[in-house]
Nucleic acid binder design. Structure first.
Lengths: 189, 189, 189, 189
DNA sequence: TATGAATGAGCGTTCATTCAT
DNA sequence: TATGAATGAACGCTCATTCAT
């Protein structure tokens, strides 16, 4: 039941937004009463918190696996990009909430989640830094800014990409890996 | 007064979100009463609509100028990237609302705004398409997806970039132009 | 278990009030679940009813003993005053509920308790009436009003007296006996 | 309207208790909506706070007048007793709330009211102390405890006395003045 | 004897909106 | 042009109670 509530909440939050989704909406969507919701969650915020935490924890775990298993820094970046893009299909709504609704958490919870999100980004930064030193990436890159740029490319796709449209998730991932690695210019200046 | 209301609304919406900002909050921030608000706006949604429309119209105008005045396609892309990034400083709050709060518009209004946002993106797409044909950009690019990638890099910065931090808006813009044009890889494989 | 539930309820009711204490609070305080509560009590009101009834029945019994065993009417009054005041220490919380929470009983239960409370008071009244006739008390007293006055002095102490403070229960009882018998004036006019 | 709301609230609180009276009950009783209530009061607690404060402030003012205008200490005590008893008629419901519902205020507000209530009692204590020294009252009295006893007699009447019954407020006041001054015993032992 | 899941009614509160002035 | 009183619907949440197990 708790799982059920979470699952339906995620879909609703993604469709209408956290503030715009009422507990009534959630419980109506699975035919139980509000009391039931509060039997499983102490508050609406706690539900959002759980969704956030579960998502980022999962992401961090899988990022860790990539960082440990793959050797070249280029391959690590490729792995992380593909990780995010592939989630579009399997975790779509979860991700869309994750990338939007954080304002509605209490300050202390925002902090907790922010730390984990930063950890994810800092890992990307570290790969870039190491890869620059190893000569795999260009020397004049600012790791921090470029990490944000890469995450911008991938995360932004959660705003518009339709996994069941013309372009498949695989194709998108390949294109973005190529874009990130090579840019768009036809030949070096 | 209408201007005043809009300006303060933008700041509040950006800080707390549209749903989380009450009309009371808005009018309190400039010391008038709710009646006054409804003298100038027919509804809270209409205010949001105006903010959106004004922002995207302005963006489209300036994009148009770039497209018309600059010759090379590379330069056009550079121009558009710099346009978005520079707005971080001058239009920060406006942009942040623009990139987030669209859910709260009625379907017909969403459609209206969406069309204009698409126009902006389609212009980027067109530049890419033309640039590919002209040999300025790599041939194997999918213009649509790459347009989204470029906008991802730039728009995402509205989520985290602090214009008064270590890195200036100019520096960020330069870095992102470089990233978009050249990617991160050190040398072609 | 029933005893356990009652005992903890009494303490909680006294601390927070009947309406402000939830069944959850009660069962949490002894580590069982709500189901258990409803196994032993048909409703929250019934618990309150039992507390009230038990308290007043006990009080009536002990009042009866005093009325039967002691001869002089003055001594009977002294006995009753001491009975109430001494309960402050042994029955504190019980008494405090008794003197406050009756509103939350159903009308028919209120009636039942009220009758017993009245019986207690009427016994005081009777002692006064008999004592006046026997010349032990002043002639111009209205027994009913004076009974209320005496109970006011004693019962009110449940609102403020701290049995473990400077003044002991014994001292308070002695003072109040003296006050009730002699008043405060220094000499007869 | 605010006055109206307060007046009806007082009656309802007295009849059913604070927790047992809903905002809906209050607004229904004068045919407005809940929104109206919250236009005038920031919370239910604030309403209770206002009732308390208004009542105790008024009481303190009138007590002050008595303390200043009347010379003998006996007369001062008589004045205070009559003040409280007479309020039964004019302020009945207000008083009944005052003597019961304080648990529902936030700690800081409880403190504020408690201080004022204590001031009232301490004034009685002071009169007793001065009166003892002046020889108007018996020497062996403990002012603090006796102050509580006197207030017990008077305040308790708010629990049972019906001003429109057999005994008038004046008669009750006279009886209680007599009781407090002389006690009930027929002759000294 | 005790649990735990579920209910449903109600509560205090918020808020966009209306409208007479 | 602006106010302030009022509305009414909705919201997050609580809680006494039920009941199958």
């Amino acid at each position: 039941m708790k799982e059920e509530l979470t699952k339906h909440s995620v879909v609703l939050f993604q469709q209408k937004g956290f503030s715009e989704t009422s507990i009534q909406d959630i419980v109506d969507s699975i035919g139980v009463t509000k009391g039931t919701f509060y039997y499983y969650f102490t508050s609406k915020e706690m539900l959002l918190m759980e969704i956030h935490e579960r998502y980022i924890d999962d992401l961090l775990n899988r990022q860790k696996a990539i960082l440990e298993q793959i050797e070249s820094y280029r391959a690590k970046i490729v792995g992380i990009v593909k990780l995010i893009i592939h989630d579009l299909q399997t975790q779509g709504p979860n991700g869309r909430i994750y990338f939007r609704e954080m304002r509605n958490l209490a300050p202390e919870n925002v902090e907790k989640i922010k730390k984990k999100r930063e950890a994810f980004r800092l890992n990307v930064e570290q790969v870039l830094r190491d890869g620059i030193q190893a000569g795999e990436f260009r020397e004049n890159l600012q790791p921090k800014m470029i990490a944000f740029a890469i995450l911008g490319v991938t995360n932004w796709s959660y705003q518009w990409f339709n996994p069941s449209g013309d372009v498949s998730v695989q194709e998108l991932a390949d294109m973005y890996v190529d874009f990130i690695l090579n840019g768009i210019i036809s030949e070096r200046d």
